[in-house]
């Protein structure tokens, strides 16, 4: 298998203005980083990358949390709804941050999703009001590796 080589030879993904995402208050623990680019690479669905704009080596893997848990009902504080300028639920794109622990274990943070305003591209990591109902390490069902 030549996985490592394939990765190295991969064409760098050029960020475009259409998927730049600004997080004015930063992610928790990364408050100083405010400019990101949201990138989906073919073959990696349903995952996408939230890459630091000035440093393509720094990135978070994200997933639509509803894809993992269709009954997910995040309760977003009114102040955050106002901050993001969300008028209705269709304005919001939710991204769950994925931690890849190993080849066989990956989890998604359902307590603190990133909420993106689809129209302004302004986003914020929000600790949902019903965070106690959800796991910070909600397991992702990974496919069995083909032998």
């Amino acid at each position: 298998m030549k996985c490592a080589e394939t990765i190295e030879l991969e064409t760098p993904v050029i960020p475009t203005a259409t998927n730049a995402v600004r997080i004015p208050t930063g992610l928790l623990g990364f408050e100083q980083i405010k400019e990101y680019v949201l990138i989906a690479k073919p073959g990696e669905e349903p995952f996408a990358w939230l890459q630091v704009q000035d440093n393509s080596a720094l990135a978070f893997v994200v997933i639509d949390p509803f894809m993992v848990l269709p009954e997910y009902q995040p309760d977003i504080p009114t102040t955050d709804v106002e901050f993001l300028g969300l008028k209705n639920s269709d304005d919001a794109l939710l991204l769950g941050i994925v931690t890849v622990h190993s080849a066989t274990k990956a989890t998604v943070n359902l307590k603190g999703p990133i909420v993106v305003n689809r129209h302004t591209h302004i986003a914020k990591q929000i600790i949902i009001m019903n965070a106690a109902d959800y796991s910070i390490e909600h397991p992702l069902p990974l496919a069995e590796t083909v032998a």
Binding site: N19, E44, P46, F47, A59
Partner: peptide, 24 residues
């Protein structure tokens, strides 16, 4: 969760293959 290398991602079992809408 921060990735400092673009590692290959695992495959998800059973989920529809739809990425979050990156073309906003």
């Amino acid at each position: 969760a921060l990735m400092k290398q673009p590692l290959p991602l695992p495959k998800l079992a059973g989920a529809p293959k739809v990425a979050p809408k990156t073309n906003l």
